[in-house]
Structure formats: C-alpha cells, structure tokens
Amino acid sequence: MAEATTTRQPLLTVTDLKQHFPIESGFILKRQIGAVRAVDGISFSVYPGETLGIVGESGCGKSTTIRSIAQLYKPTAGKVMFNGLDLVNASKDELLKARKDIQLIFQDPYASLNPRMTVRQIISEPLTIYSNRKMLQPEMTKEEIETRIEELMERVGLNKAFKNRYPHEFSGGQRQRIGIARALALNPKIILADEPVSALDVSIQSQILNLLNDLQKDLGLTYLFIAHDLAVIEYISTRVAVMYLGIIVELSESRDLYHNPLHPYTKALLSAAPIPDPAIERKRKRIILTGDVPSPIKEHKGCYFYERCPMRMEHCATNIPPLHQVSEGHEVACWLYE
C-alpha cells in the first residue's frame, strides 16, 4: 500500500500548519502577551481513498487541526492544499466551492445537531444552502431534495418515518447517523471526522465504525479521522499520525505502528491502552508516564516530550527533533533514531 500512496497525487496536503490562539491583556489597546500553541507546525498528506488517523491525548491539538483545515479558524501560518487550491488564501467563492467537498462529522452527537430543527431540516441544510446560492450541480428541485433526504436516511440506517422528528428524540448512535447523513448530503470527497465514536457506547461504536467503513468502500470517500482511542484508530486507519502538544511525533502505516512503535510517547500510549482480555491485561507491563501534559502556552526549545520522556538525553533538552523517515512510510520525531 505504501508504494501505491507515494505514486498517487495527495488529495489534501498540510504544510507546516500553525494555529496559535493569542492571549491578550489590556483594557482598550489589546496587547498580546502570549499564545496557546494549539497546533505548532504540522505537515502531512492525505491520499484519495485512504484514512489518515490522528491520535493523541486531549489538548494535543488534534481537533484544532481539523478545524484549521476546514477553515473554521484562520490558521496562523502554513498551507492547506486541497485539490490544488490553497484553502488558507482562497477567496470566499473558491472556499465555498471547496467546502462542498470537505465535510465534518463531530464528536458530540448531542451538541452537533441544532435542537430546534427536525431531522429533515438538518440533513437538507447543506443542500438548501448550496441550492440557495445556485451552486448545486445539478440543480435540485424541492422534490429531488426530499428524495435525497430519504435516500440518505436509508443509507445511514435511519427509519424514514422519523423524518420530522427532533434530534432529542433519538439515541446517541442514531444522532451520529444523522450527522453522518448531513455530511454525505453534498457528496463530499473528504470527510473530517472529529472523534465521531468517542461519545458513543461500545455496541454503538462498532456499528458506526462499520458504517463509516461501508461508506468509504461504496462512495470512495477519504477520511481524516481523529480519536484518542488507539484501538479505534488502528482499526479504521490506513496510516496513523501520533500528536503530542501540537506536533506530530510519529507517522506510520497503522499495522506498523502497533507492532513497531518508535517514539517513546507512542510506546507509552500503546502500553497504557487497556485491552479487554484479562489474560493479556494481567501479564502486561505498563510504561507509566510521570507527570501531566505541560501547558501549550510554553514555547519549546527542545523536544516537546522532554519533561515526561523516560529515555530523555541531554541533547533532547535543547534541540527540537525533526520528523524524519526511518523506514518506508514510517516517520518519527525523536533523537533516538537519528
């Protein structure tokens, strides 16, 4: 698969993306006194038809990455190339056109649906917006939109009879299906999924993962998939990027990552993930990291993981390790492998 990805054109390329949120003080004249470095320079490419998983702990900037790519925030620096268009510097019209192909699925199935709208209105909203702007190709009549809604509801496994119900009448899993139907409405090329299963129950989680897999197969979708659960990421992704404090510390094929983790943080993450099998679980030796994730306000001179790293060296304190290729399709940012 690795050979295949290198020869193909990437669908989405992120180059040195930075998203800093300024911390301001002062009464009338605001003065910037620092910044939350949510995303601090990341680069990766997503190829058509694949799933790139981003894994990391809360606050590592994975959700911000997705929102910066979707231009919900204006990135501080860097480039986001989608289909040959730089989204960061695109005009309003170009961005609108590109947005049709980039859709989001959100984490919280309760907060991501407007409680005052019926399922019909929610799913048809993207269609309505683009049809009002006369940007729908081909143009759709009201009846066509209605048929499309029913088609989408069936596609994601919802009963059409509930078309005029409100989101609060559905369970978490069903709401997530509504969210997915909405994302599919415009036939997007790429779906940015922000922890779509982490708020769901175990039995529902597997339904949604299966649904996403089926949709990818049937519609040829590309996913950028975020999760904090390593097992979920490993299951759904073709390649995985591990994020820590706003940077990518390791990027590899998903099988490779589990069998051959390189970065000490990846190793700790993998060992901390509980496995639902007492026989294995009792025998496992965990790498327990000491301390907490440092504040993202801090500007780093050395390795971002220096404070918590069990293998830290003197060299790491003052030099930031670059992300470099160790083997085919396996990149890591650590001085151990230099």
Binding site: L72, L104, L113, N114
Partner: peptide, 28 residues
C-alpha cells in the same frame, strides 16, 4: 461555540442564516 454552529459554518452558511436559523431559535 457549539458544534452545530461549527457544522453550519463548515457547510458555508452565511452569518445571517447562522444567526436567524440557528442561534436565535435556540435562545427563543
């Protein structure tokens, strides 16, 4: 900052639509 507003923005909804279709009905 709710996700459904982000969802609307990511769909390219205009400011007026977000205010009068999403925000105001929810503060009604």
């Amino acid at each position: 900052n709710q996700e459904f507003i982000e969802a609307a923005r990511s769909m390219g909804a205009s400011t007026g639509r977000i205010i009068f279709k999403h925000l105001v009905p929810n503060s009604l």
